[in-house]
Design a protein around this nucleic acid. Structure first.
Lengths: 358, 358
DNA sequence: ACCTACGATGGTAACGTTCCCATTCGAGGT
DNA sequence: ACCTCGAATGGGAACGTTACCATCGTAGGT
């Protein structure tokens, strides 16, 4: 084994803290302004000599600009905040993944806060994000717009609403085309011969997208002359209610094949559990859900879903945000970007061939 | 509709930016030091009068301390950074949830970076976290310790390794007791009568916990005199390899009932898909996985798993971190906190009763 | 009544940047 | 030869906060 004389950086040795711009400047024998220029977007204003000198010094001292100081001076934190209603929901995570990638690609970092669907936590987290002077906000909020949120918006921080709109609150929105999605579901279920439908949702008061989906369902039921009804219930609090609703629906006499439509991934999971417990054969009784899940093709005979383009939604949210950010003062009316769902047709909406004696 | 005289805050009206401590001080007719005291932990050093005056002014101006400035001055960013190897992995998300809650409870915020198992992204994100002067780091890293990471550690930022250790790199570690987990799995599989085992893992070079699990499996196979083998393969890149491995294993003649053991949730998902495609009956062929997943009870007849106490792991990581942070200079040797897995026994490891003519 | 000491407050210098405004120097136009 | 202009650099004042030290009363001890 070959050993070289070991070079200990004298500065690093007795100072555990980060080097500052001033120290780099001294080491390179230039002014701190020049070092600052080197690390900002004005690097090309410096001569070759200067650039190499600074580069060498910075490397030697292992220098990194302090974002805190940067943020303080120019008001540019380079931080985007994101509020997620439920981080344990795979849909939210997938969107977040898209958001993070887009931020990164544009030189921003993402500060994620999970609110667990709790308005109190939402307020706290908003205060926090405000304290860090995030330059923009991607919000997947619960319930009503809080006072905090309004204030942040008034102060000029651009924000984008994800998947949900917020009362009369004006802001860009990115999400699924919920009405079209419901239509697609109904188209598919009708085409497959299901004529008696039960729509199951979590409580709609919390989220506008849930409201839209359910309203559209109920409206289209009438328009299309289908049988069926919609029910919204709390999955965690009252699990028995779900069982009852499903049992009643399946027990009621009807001329038409029956199918269940689940408003989101959580519901799909809970409903699948119940159906399995009640010994229901999927396909014979139709099952379809909004939100694609890892395991949808694993439960025999596969569960039909409407997949949301999650990554795209996340990216679009960031794009919308940065557009506002770059063209400040642009008071164009809020945009609404809607993505189309994609049908993943599987066995749970495939009726078994009726027994036909030949 | 009743209208009250509309009160426009003159400051808010023409200044879209946040109020500063100085403005609050002026408004309240006190010094900024006092305002600073009010918002830090020295509030009780102020008189009643002063407190109410400041509170009123702060509320009127909607003041929030600027964390950037705070961080700059005292070096306290109140930020914890977390590096996640794969944010799309439910296990990681669950741990992250625990980490975030613990941070919040202790007054810190969490800056999460997802590296998608890419060392380059890992380096970039570490640089970023360093730039924001995070006070501690929770790391679920890929591969080898990067130069960046070593530097950060040398500069005195406490860090905790999650689920993986990092070569000779010395740091606190929190994770599953992998050896015991493998033993539990083998205990269970043996007890259920499976005597020919195939252990399937993702490539072990990336993560130490994968190595430990696989090594323990291979070692215990010998100790216990069981038949079987272990294979590690890349799920995304070479899906055919997985199919082959499984097919070969199941086709090989053996006196013993066969079972598969999956090293983590990803593998469990992929393996379940393959088994289903190959028409394998679960239970008859055993299946067991490390990591509990939403859908494990939905795939007939239910998949047996070893559940990790994810939230607890996350919380423990933060506790360890803060302990180091509060007792700086404490150069106690690295701790290693290991959690026990919990067996979730389901049908996939329940052999059907053999046909016994009476 | 005087000195001490403590409790309540205020002033000011940092923290590490960026940005605005010099200053210098040489090239090009008149 | 002089004036102008721009390119390359440096000096210093902010940004909003906290920490240290100074100041001012006033109550308690002698």
């Amino acid at each position: 084994m070959v050993t070289f004389p070991f070079e200990v950086d004298p500065f690093m040795a007795d100072n555990p803290n980060r080097a500052t711009i001033l120290e780099v400047a001294r080491d390179a024998g230039v002014s701190k302004t020049s070092v600052s220029r080197y690390f900002s977007s004005e690097r090309d204003r410096l001569s070759e000599t200067m650039q190499t000198r600074i580069a060498r010094a910075a490397k030697r001292l292992n220098y990194r600009p302090n974002q805190m100081a940067r943020g303080l001076k120019g008001g540019h934190s380079r931080l985007i905040g994101m509020l997620v209603a439920d981080i344990l929901n795979p849909f939210s995570v997938a969107v977040m993944h898209g958001v993070e990638q887009a931020c990164r690609a544009r030189g921003f970092s993402l500060l994620v806060c999970n609110t667990d669907n709790d308005p109190a936590q939402e307020r706290d987290h908003l205060a926090l994000l405000a304290a860090y002077r995030v330059e923009g906000l991607v919000i997947n909020a619960a319930g009503q717009p809080s006072r905090e949120l309004k204030q942040i918006a008034e102060q000029g921080t651009p924000l984008v609403l994800l998947d949900r709109s917020l009362g009369d609150f004006e802001a860009d929105e990115v999400g699924l085309d919920n009405a079209r999605a419901i239509d697609m579901a109904l188209d598919h279920l009708s085409a497959q011969g299901y004529g008696d439908l039960l729509y199951l949702s979590e409580p709609t008061s919390q989220a506008s997208s849930r409201q839209i989906r359910q309203e559209r369902f109920e409206q289209q039921l009438v328009v299309r002359g289908l049988e069926g009804k919609a029910a919204s219930l709390s999955l965690d609090k009252d699990h028995a209610a779900l069982e009852h609703a499903i049992r009643d629906f399946l027990a009621a006499p009807s001329q038409q094949p029956k199918a269940l439509l689940c408003a989101n991934g959580h519901v799909t999971l809970a409903v699948t559990r119940v159906l399995q417990a009640q010994g229901v054969v999927l396909g014979e009784t139709g099952l379809m859900g909004i939100d694609e899940l890892d395991w949808c093709d694993l439960v025999t005979p596969g569960i039909t879903t409407l997949a949301q383009p999650t990554e795209g939604i996340g990216r679009a949210a960031v794009e919308a945000l940065l557009q506002r950010l770059e063209h400040r003062g642009n008071t164009a009316p809020p945009r609404r970007i809607q993505y189309q769902a994609q049908l993943m047709s599987r066995g749970s909406t495939q009726r078994p061939a009726p027994f036909t004696p030949r």
